[in-house]
Amino acid sequence: MSKTILCHCEDVEVEELYSALKQGYGDIETLKRYTGIGTGKCQGKCCFIQTLRLLDALKSEGENGRPAFAGDVTSIHVPTLRPPVLPLRIDDIVDCDEEGT
């Protein structure tokens, strides 16, 4: 069976998302922490929207033997976005601060 990668940074497959749902990890914040999606270098820029699309498709009933999305969620939303917007080199952060003061 072919594999579909959901999160390229952390090498998470779509099946891992389904597996987490099956085990009851049903809300988006927990899915992020359980599977690792969105915690790599791109911080979810590539995978969050795909994750939400998959969850939406599963929301009402399971398809093809996949789990119905009946976890603990009250809504499907993007996990809390955290700074920095782009990865920042430590040298650049320190030098920028020293120039600024």
Partner: peptide, 25 residues
């Protein structure tokens, strides 16, 4: 915090200056 922690890391491990911070909370 980002400024202060970046300085801690570079002062303690100078080589870490080349590494990038990706997330804070």
């Amino acid at each position: 915090f980002l400024f202060r922690f970046a300085k801690v890391l570079r002062d303690t491990f100078p080589k870490l200056g080349k590494a990038r911070i990706i997330r804070q909370w």
